[in-house]
């Protein structure tokens, strides 16, 4: 029994111009100890799917799914109160902007101990030692001196550490990190990613990493889901995917990276991600795809082997290593 099981999750928003399908038939199955990365460009619905799981979407959203269960409990039929008992305790989420995710009015100790008191009972004061232990665990030096610090006194990296401490306070089974390092500097980003992986291994959590950065995926995750315009176009193990991308979008995305450039001109993907009003017929990627054929323009593709494409790129032999060759 998987820890998290999502089948055919679809999220639609009501907007001024009619209904907008932000997430389209997304499925995800996750076990304890997994690190899964969801990667995609803006507008690919990568955050929305996870926010739907957390129940954090505004009222304009309509969520439908064949199955959405966590740890054997059905999240679809659950009422708001039961859901709250799970969210924040067993499932936690950290966000992109560490500076705005912490409440600027309260100090570090207050914010973390409140989470502890909420889920374990007892007064906030009784959790002081645990707060210190948590801060230690996320690598904050001299945690005793930081207890009374307010968010504006912390740097971006420190705030993100505090945020992580808060989110692992209840020892969640699943941690969702939504672009946790995008707002941080490179050297701090490396520290935070390392910390997340360390904690994931130490606590045996499952970790979902939402990011737009292929390089972060390559260095951190085991499995990767590539999303495009709300659809999962490819879902595979990281090493396989990087060595042998099979969906044309994944391939194009990788070869657009400056690292893979063989000449001064980069292999850009022409055009833009389709918006609400200009969704093409057939495969959503067909106007930008260099392999597109007539079938792609007429009929939406079926998923096979985790790839949503009429003409997936061929599997390479084990010896031809795309990545190594191009570096």
């Amino acid at each position: 029994m998987a820890l998290l099981e999502i089948t055919n999750l679809t999220v639609e928003f009501a907007t001024a111009h009619g209904s907008l399908r932000a997430v389209d038939q997304v499925s995800l199955s996750l076990d304890v100890g997994d690190i899964v990365a969801i990667v995609g460009e803006s507008g690919s619905g990568k955050s929305v799917a996870m926010l739907a799981l957390m129940g954090l979407l505004p009222w304009t959203a309509t969520i439908t799914a064949d199955q959405m269960s966590f740890d054997g409990k059905d999240l679809l039929t659950m009422n708001a109160k039961q859901r709250r008992a799970i969210i924040g305790k067993d499932i936690s989420m950290i966000f992109q902007e560490p500076m705005t995710s912490l409440n600027p009015c309260f100090n570090v100790e207050y914010q973390i101990s409140e989470v502890l008191a909420q889920h374990f009972g007892g007064s906030r004061r009784s959790h002081k030692n645990r707060v210190i232990k948590l801060l230690e665990k996320v690598g904050i030096p001299a945690p005793e001196t930081r207890l009374k610090a307010y968010p504006h006194q912390l740097s971006g990296g420190m705030s993100q550490r505090v945020m992580i401490a808060m989110m692992i306070a209840c020892e969640p089974k699943l941690l969702i990190a939504d672009e946790p390092t995008t707002a941080l500097d490179v050297t701090i980003q490396a520290q935070i990613l390392e910390l997340l992986v360390e904690l994931q291994q130490a606590n045996g959590m499952a970790l979902v990493l939402i990011t737009h950065d292929m390089a972060v995926v390559a260095e951190t995750a085991d499995r990767v889901v590539v999303q495009y315009a709300g659809q999962q176009v490819e879902q595979r193990a990281v090493i396989e995917l990087f060595n042998n991308p099979r969906h044309p979008y994944t391939e194009a995305l990788l070869s657009a990276l400056p690292e893979y450039a063989k000449e001064k001109t980069l292999n850009a993907i022409p055009g833009v991600v389709p918006g609400q009003l200009d969704r093409p017929a057939g495969c959503l990627f067909n106007p930008r795809c260099e392999h597109a054929q007539d079938l792609c323009r007429q009929k939406p593709p079926q998923r096979s082997e985790g790839i949503l494409c009429h003409y997936p790129l061929p599997l390479k032999g084990a010896t031809t290593d795309h990545v190594e060759a191009s570096l």
């Binding site: 001024a16 022409p270 055009g271 833009v272 389709p274 009003l277 200009d278 093409p280 106007p287």
Partner: peptide
């Protein structure tokens, strides 16, 4: 970028008004 050309025939001004009216 051909997909963008198709949708340019509407007037900008009237679209803004429509959006304003939607929220109002």
């Amino acid at each position: 970028m051909t997909s963008i050309t198709a949708t340019t025939s509407y007037s900008v001004r009237s679209q803004q008004w429509r959006e304003f009216w939607f929220y109002f």
